[in-house]
Design a protein around this nucleic acid. Structure first.
Lengths: 343, 343
DNA sequence: ATTTTCGATGATAGCGCAATCATATCGGCG
DNA sequence: CGCCGATATGATTGCGCTATCATCGAAAAT
């Protein structure tokens, strides 16, 4: 007889227990169950325990879809990165998710590749989930993307790049500065005839631009540039460096990623070139295998974990106090030239 | 005067355009706008165009939170992997997301580490989003996890492991078989005195068990085992191999991941041991850098992309026809011993 | 001409939850 | 003793959308 008062569940119902079911079992109002679960400090100890028991008894799993609609808080953060098949971004994903999940947020991951068009498409569907915050890789967005982000008025952190004019918050580093620093480093080592192998991606190109401007500051106007598609890979590095070495007398090759540099290293070894004696090689990223190659790869270390962590912190702060305006906050985490055995 | 009939938006409203706003601008009923956007084949061409214009004019972004609540379809798939900071799982994430996003699904990523407890916690919050499908790494789940998954009645694919008794669908390979195959391979090469360095993770332990059983089949009962914590890293490999080599005369060391093997390789080189002459080394995973090490690392290739792709395909099929029962479907994608220069 | 069919559109009613305000209870205090 | 404020709980309403059924006009069938 204990369900004699129940209306039959509508045909649209999902079948699993709802808040009202828990409430009936616990002998309280639905609202009290909601509070017991979300704001336990507002209910008495005894009620909280009764609700807890009722939850176990009914096997209730809260429906956060409904909760999000009712409260306009999704507890969801969108994280948009080009790829996870690259240890640097994987590290960012790992740390961002660690920091956010400890605060009860879940992550909606979007892989946007390296083109603004993909970013635009993915952002649209992401915004339709009404995330409470967004972490976005890069600062170069399409006009539509910028407009949508502004209209959404959602806390936002751009990462992995640098600009004076962020959409909201920014945690990253200057790719141009990286390029210039690499140029200075290699010039100080005495290298003069440079090859460059770069991925066809806007941030890699910025680093190349910085590198070239560094060369020009030293009066060097000549260099050989080859572009490769994404994703970068060892074979790309081998192929392009073979092309470069066949046609030009070079004493150093600079790569837009460690994996390309490893390919160059293979090519050099297959040609019997001593490294760095006859050919110096420079990578980017300081991936876990950079130190493991033989000879150990000189590279540029980017602290992806720091970027992810600070980005998450900034976002959490803003999501906790949405009124406190701190737009325009910019953090440059820098980088470090790691001088191993290939330069 | 054109808003004279509007009720003021309630204080709970979010401020952005809703379906009814688009409907008013387009001069149709809200339901027609919903259809024009989600089932365009059900509305006339002219209505569809008017709605399209109204959407642009209002800057409407659909609210899929509300849509999901109303339709009981979230268009969300939960993807639970131990970590993305490991190229094998990154590859899975990459391919699963590629396949799902092309069909309009978004991915809720969960990083569950290597313990059933974490999986349990994360699964609970994941289920509260009412995903349309779940991809779960591994087949060993806590009782509560199994119970919740069964109660949720959501299409599910377990990956990266093998069992006769999957919860629903399964795409993976047998870790024990990997271990046995590695044992046979090394035994056929003549190695007899083995060290094992394994991560403290249940699937790695299965591979160890398979390896040991392979040794025992050959009448070898002695071997040296060291466990390391997660995440595996080169320093762990170096440290544990140093310990092993100090105390035991070994002619081969088997590792539960390529990154550990690379550490072992460094240690061997630092001791002036020839590889594989004085010490053979075996990795697992065939990470991108395995072929790049010097000497190139012998390892076990797992086709993470194939696993991700097939898992996504199975899931899409089931989500499209939820009535068509195919529970119990199991796909073994196998593995391959990659015999490079360290064995 | 009348009925049937079908495509297109609209009206209504929830989906499951939390914001909000109303109500009840209780001890402390003038 | 009655009033006040704090604390605990409940009733109501609506978040924005889609399932469902009703309606309506026009073409097709009788």
């Amino acid at each position: 007889m204990d369900d004699s008062g129940d209306k039959p569940r509508s045909s649209r119902s999902t079948g699993s227990a709802r808040l009202t079911d828990v409430a009936r079992v616990a002998g309280v109002a639905p609202m009290t169950v909601s509070r017991a679960l979300n704001r336990p400090e507002l209910v008495s100890e005894s009620t909280r325990l009764r609700v807890q028991r009722a939850v176990l008894e009914t096997g209730y799993v809260p429906n956060r879809v409904a909760g999000a609609l009712a409260s306009s808080r999704s507890r969801l953060v969108a994280l948009l990165v080009p790829t996870v098949a690259h240890s640097l971004f994987a590290e960012v994903v790992q740390t961002v998710m660690g920091a956010l999940s400890s605060q009860g947020y879940q992550v909606l991951l979007g892989l946007v590749g390296y083109t603004p068009e993909q970013e635009e498409t993915i952002l649209e569907t992401v915004l339709s989930r009404r995330p409470d915050g967004i972490v976005l890789t890069g600062c170069r967005h399409s006009a539509l993307t910028r407009q949508r982000l502004k209209a959404a008025e959602v806390p936002l952190v751009e990462i992995w790049d640098m600009t004076d004019d962020p959409l909201d918050m920014l945690v990253g580093f200057s790719h141009e500065a990286v390029g210039r620093a690499v140029a200075e480093h290699l010039l100080s080592r005495g290298y003069r005839r440079f090859g460059i192998i770069s991925a066809d991606d806007s941030r890699a190109k910025l680093r190349v631009a910085g590198f070239v401007s560094g060369l020009e500051s030293a009066g060097i106007g000549e260099y050989q540039l080859r572009e490769v598609g994404t994703p970068s890979s060892m074979p790309w590095g081998r192929e392009k460096s073979a092309e470069l070495l066949d046609r030009h007398a070079l004493d150093a090759i600079v790569c837009s990623s460690d994996i390309l540099a490893l390919g160059v290293l293979s090519e050099a070894q297959s040609r019997g070139l001593t490294v760095p004696g006859q050919l110096a090689i420079m990578g980017f990223g300081d991936s876990s295998y950079a130190a493991a190659s033989f000879p150990a790869l000189s590279t540029v270390r980017i602290d992806g974990a720091a970027i992810g962590l600070r980005a998450a912190e900034h976002l959490l702060q803003r999501m906790a106090q949405p009124t406190f305006e701190r737009a325009g906050q910019v953090l440059d985490v820098g980088f470090e030239i790691v001088d191993r055995d290939t330069t």
